[in-house]
C-alpha cells in the first residue's frame, strides 16, 4: 500500500468523470489543496449536535431513535460554531468525494487544529468506491471552547493504492451530503443475534441451576 504523491493525485483528480481511477473531489476551491502527499479538506456547513435529554444513555440496543437526542443545524459560511470542551458533534466535509476502486484513504486532522485540541475524525478509514461527503466526528479535547469556521481547511486525506480493485458493496452512508445519524439504531441485526445467543446461554445456566445436585456420599 503506497501513499499517493502530488503528481499522481493531480492526475487522478483532473481525469474526466467516468474514467477509471478518477478521484472525484468537488468543490476544490484552491489548487493548493492538493499537497505533496495529501489533499486538504474543508469543513462543511451542516452539523449534527447532541441534545441534552432525559435518556439515561445512548443504547443502540433499545427501541429509540437518534432523532430523540440529535438534531441537525446549519452554520453558514462566515459564521462560527463553538465546541465546548469534551463535546462531540458530527460535521461534514465541504468536498463531495468519489474514491476509485483501486484506492482507499484515511482522514487526519490538520496539526494546526490538533494543537488547539480539536480532533476531526475518529472513524478515519474511507473504503474504495465510497462516494459522498465525509462525516467528521469533531471533538474538542482542550480545556477551553474552540470556534470552528465552515469553509476552512480542517483535515487531510491520505490516499493509498490497493493491490487489486476492491469489490465492495455500496456503503450505508453512500451519497451523503450531510452528517448522517448513526445507522446502528435502524440496523440492530447484530445486537439481536448476540442477544439470541445470550438467551440460549441463559437457558443453559437456568437448566444447570435446576439440575438435581449429586448426593453426598
Amino acid at each position: 500500500m503506497a501513499v499517493l504523491t502530488k503528481q499522481e493525485l493531480e492526475r487522478r483528480v483532473r481525469t474526466p468523470p467516468g474514467s477509471p481511477g478518477r478521484i472525484g473531489i468537488t468543490p476544490l476551491l484552491d489548487s493548493d489543496q492538493i499537497g505533496s502527499d495529501s489533499i486538504d479538506i474543508r469543513l462543511g456547513s451542516y452539523f449534527t449536535v447532541f441534545r441534552r435529554t432525559r435518556m439515561a444513555c445512548l443504547d443502540v440496543g433499545e427501541d429509540s431513535s437518534p432523532y430523540d437526542f440529535q438534531e441537525m443545524i446549519h452554520v453558514p459560511m462566515g459564521q462560527r460554531l463553538i465546541i465546548p470542551p469534551s463535546m462531540l458533534l458530527l460535521g461534514v466535509t465541504l468536498e463531495y468525494m468519489a474514491v476509485p476502486s483501486d484506492l482507499c484513504c484515511h482522514v487526519v486532522t490538520r496539526s494546526s487544529w490538533g494543537r488547539l485540541g480539536v480532533i476531526i475524525a475518529t472513524a478515519v478509514w474511507v473504503h474504495p468506491n465510497f462516494t459522498g461527503c465525509l462525516t467528521l466526528e469533531l471533538v474538542n479535547n482542550a480545556e477551553a471552547p474552540v470556534a470552528l469556521y465552515p469553509g476552512t481547511e480542517v483535515g487531510q486525506l491520505v490516499f493509498h493504492s490497493l493491490d487489486s480493485d476492491a469489490q465492495i458493496a455500496p456503503s450505508q452512508y453512500e451519497g451523503q451530503t450531510r452528517p448522517l445519524y448513526s445507522k446502528l439504531f435502524s440496523n440492530r441485526g447484530e445486537i439481536e443475534r448476540v442477544r439470541r445467543i445470550g438467551d440460549r446461554f441463559h437457558g443453559v445456566e437456568q437448566c444447570m441451576a435446576r439440575a438435581p445436585q449429586p448426593l453426598r456420599p
Binding site: 468523470p17 467516468g18 472525484g24 468537488t26 463531495y96 468519489a98 453512500e174
Partner: peptide
C-alpha cells in the same frame, strides 16, 4: 451516472 454531483466536477 457515477453517483456524483451534477455538473460540479473540477
Amino acid at each position: 451516472k457515477d453517483y456524483q454531483l451534477p455538473y460540479a466536477h473540477p
